[in-house]
Design a protein around this nucleic acid. Structure first.
Length: 138
RNA sequence: UGAGUGGGUCAGGUGGUCGCCGGCUUUAAUGUGCCGGAGGAAAGUCCGAGCAGGACAGGGCACGGUGGCAGUUAACGGCUGCCCCGGGUGACCGGCGGGAAAGUGCCGCAGAAAAUAUACGGCCGAUGGUUCCUUCGGGGACACAGGUAAAGGUGAAAUGGUGCGGUAAGAGCGCACCGCGAUGGUGGUAACAUCAUCGGCAUGGUAAACCCCACCGCCUGCAAGACCAAGCAGCUGUCAGCCCGGCCCGGGCAAUGACAGCGGGUAGGUUGCUUCCCUUUAUGGGAGAGCUGGCUGGCGACAGUCGGUCCAGUUAAAUGGCCACCACCUUGCGGAAGUGAGGUACAGAACUCGGCUUAUCGACCCACUCAGUUU
RNA sequence: UGGGGUAUAGUGUAACGGCAGCACGACAGACUCUGAAUCUGUUUGUCUAGGUUCGAAUCCUAGUACCCCAG
């Protein structure tokens, strides 16, 4: 039975971590968010969230972050390991979505289902990017 | 019963399960067990403090703030009670509410005039003067001397108001009432109220215009400050001093240093930091504008005293997800029982307190006012 | 987190407490075969709510939005 823990070692903690993930430029997104992906050598996936000020007030942003972390916690064994995941809630689209249904209940389900799909997409993209980069270097 | 006024409390609840942060215990360690884990506004950062640093934190000026009186407090621009003014039938509400005879400024348009009591305009011409008539008593005209401040369409505001008398015309010129001022008495700690006498009224408004008066205020802020680790490269200019970051006084520091500019390096950790100290490890003692309950004093804010208690501590930043039941609200179906769907505000600690202000679905409680009905 | 500032027409900006302007734009008309340019005219505004004042864009109080600075 797999465990569903989420500790500090599984988080992106430093500004340099965030920089590195963003500089790889491998992302996939939908109406709600964009997911950036980058490889690591920790032996487990790591996760970070970024929510802009336009997503709402502090309570709303906090709630989005907690939902995202919960999704990662439950789905961490269904996604590719050895990668860093950075979830960025995009401004206009997510704003509309949130203001239209304020319940956040179905929002959680949507997040959960789309997170895995996007992670797969982004990882594929990352592999392609790194392959291209290697060939360019050669 | 209806309408309303003021104040207060709460901020859905319970259980299960998967997680997160901190403390203690135990372990080599992951972990296990127990306990604790957002708010009334945590917000805005509008005030006041603690705490830290800036010479040893001191004086004056400048600058800024406050502004009825008394009290309360660690302190305040907060709060409490009272006074005055304005509003409401009333409970009650609102008020940056000192000084305009210290000085300066401003008062557009309109209006004769906007701060100087006088010109303009007006009225009269009793008393003088000139002149005409005359029955010689006097009567008329002129507007010359002069007397007046009532009327003058305005305006936010016009030199006390209204009424009666008075007069040549008038006028606080006289009187009555109202307003204003002075003096004195009474009540009150005081703001002030009230009564009596006198003055006939003498100088409009604006100080959220400058200003004056009284009182208060050094400056900067936990990203303050302290310590550890890592790392680099110094150079130039100015001053003989530099610091107290507006100026002066007074004070302190240094004798190769201070300041300024350019360039380089690091952008990690611990602490401050969660009631605080002391001894010692026992559930010890002391101190705490801390929280809470009782009693006493006070109209009240609050104070005193006795007992209980110690209540989040993160740092890309913990307090969440799911399930079940119940409570309340809206709504669909239904005769009803019931059942389906949706919802349960504002909002998230970042050094800590005391206020203020702003946001807020609702629910409940207390006191009071007005109107109507019944007894 | 702390400190400071701004808000005026669609945009950029003026205005001692006394009628809220200017430029660009937009719209309409003229000129032209048509358009551009030019000329003429019109349009729209003091961030919000209270207060002081006879009278507030301006003064005071409270809020809202945005911007800048320090580290």
């Amino acid at each position: 039975m797999a465990r569903f823990i989420f500790r500090k070692t599984q988080r992106l903690v430093d500004n340099s971590h965030f920089r590195r993930v963003l500089e790889d430029r491998s992302c996939a997104g939908n109406d709600l968010f964009r997911l950036y992906v980058s490889g690591n050598d920790c032996g487990h996936p790591r996760f970070g969230v970024s929510i802009g000020k336009k997503a709402g007030n502090a309570v709303r942003r906090n709630r989005l972050k907690r939902l995202a972390r919960e999704v990662f916690r439950l789905e961490q064994h269904n996604i590719a390991p050895d990668y860093d995941y950075l979830l960025i809630f995009s401004l206009k689209k997510s704003k509309n979505n949130i203001t239209s249904n304020r319940s956040d209940g179905p929002n959680f389900e949507i997040l959960k289902s789309s997170f895995v799909r996007m992670s797969q997409k982004a990882v594929e993209k990352w592999r392609r990017n790194t392959h291209l980069r290697q060939t360019e270097n050669l």
